[in-house]
């Protein structure tokens, strides 16, 4: 297979994954499930598109595509995690079909705790640096 055929295959697979992710975003019942479908499929799909561009062009564009892939892979799970946590803490209810919820107890304890989360985080950051 020539390099253009490889690039074509990779990019079309990537677009297919992107489409599946966005279909999941529309079809699934609550924000956490949507986040699951969206993050996983769209991250991998975009990585496939970037890989296709790297194969197609080579040189400077390929290097930038690889760096961009690393950024997307590192940032998207962190973003998803932050959005899921804030959604839960801002009180978005999970879908009624949710079978277990171990997280509720932790969040309720935090709401009534005297020390806010901020102090814990800054204390940790300071011990890491010291």
């Amino acid at each position: 297979m020539s390099s253009e055929a490889w690039a074509e295959t990779l990019i079309l697979i990537g677009v297919l994954f992107d489409l599946l992710g966005t279909i999941g975003l529309v079809r699934l019942p609550d924000v956490y499930n949507r986040l699951q479908a969206g993050t996983k499929c769209v991250t991998l799909g975009t990585c496939f598109i970037l890989a296709g561009a790297a194969v197609w062009a080579g040189g400077a564009l390929a290097m930038k595509a690889v760096i961009c892939m690393a950024f997307v892979l590192l940032t998207s799970p962190v973003g998803a995690h932050a959005l899921a946590r804030s959604a839960y803490r801002s009180g978005v209810a999970a879908w009624e079909g949710t079978v277990v919820d171990d997280y509720r107890g932790h969040v309720e304890r935090l709401m009534h705790a005297p020390t806010p989360m901020k102090d814990e985080a800054t204390a940790l950051a300071q011990t890491e640096i010291a």
Binding site: G14, V15, D18, G21, T22, L25, V31, R34, L35, G38, T39, V42, T43, G45, T46, I49, L50, C68, V72, S76, G79, A80, L83, S86, A87, S90, V92
Partner: peptide
Amino acid sequence: PDRAVAIDILGTLVVG
């Protein structure tokens, strides 16, 4: 949060 999630995913699509 649903809207925030969709905005985040739209950003990744724009990269592609």
